[in-house]
Amino acid sequence: MADVSHIDTQEYEAQFGDYVELLKPRVMRLVVFTALVGMLVAPVPVHPVIAIASILCIAIGAGASGALNMWWDRDIDAIMKRTQGRPIPSGRVQPGEALAIGLALSGLSVMMLAVFANIAAAGWLAFTIFFYVVVYSIGLKRLTPQNIVIGGAAGAFPPLLGWVVATGSISVEPILLVALILIWTPPHFWALALWRNEDYKAAGIPMLPVMRGERVTRRYIFGYTLLLIPVALAPSFTQIGGLAYLAVSLVLNAVLLAGAWRLLKRQESDRDADNFRAEKQFFGFTIVYLFVHFLMLLVEATLRALDLSITALPIWF
């Protein structure tokens, strides 16, 4: 006689919201915004229905890589305060479920993007997912203090994806947008890492402040800021930029440079006295910095559409 008994070991039933959380909705929001900008500034118009469907695919693809990242990083996520509440370490979602959802949505989003937009866009989306999950999460994140430099590349691709959806090919403008996010990422994350140092140390992630110390990190933040300025200004001199973008970008870069200089000059006693206030401010400003740059590209695209753009700047690229 068969003795069939069902033992319910799970007292918690995963809700739909837990699975949504697996897709990192906050990262998705940024991906949707930058991909949309990449698509709207491209010289080829996209039908709104195809635009919405394609952006959705890109967002789902980004979410899927987020789920795969959470599946792979579940051991260190359980250690760090910032990530302890994520669905897997908090026990709401099983690791296997996250893996299944991540793989299924990766495949689905790439296939659907190929059908909705074009093969090139789908190929780039597949490459982005591969880069974030395999090269960054599985490969380099736990190996090198330059992890964030490489990880930033994965986060930098969405505007290029949007551009390729519209045009089917790559040119200098989307490459500049990728470079902007790519070089922006290290100072942005290292500022965060400065006051999250203990967390990363506990989890054994080789973040720059853990490996090389605070002084070196501050120098790196300043160095990358210097590198970032010309890259951020360069789109002004392409067909997607203009005077409005240049003017706003100059102001943003001046503020960023001042902030990075302030971080460079701070001593340990300074940051203990105000509990990392300047570092947190700098981190907060980097978010505004990137958002407003992309917003200005949208403004320029709108001005061009209305025939209001001032064509005083030469197109160098």
Partner: peptide
Amino acid sequence: AMIFAVSIVKLSQ
């Protein structure tokens, strides 16, 4: 619904 909408758009281009 989305696949249907995209089909209509693509077929009417």
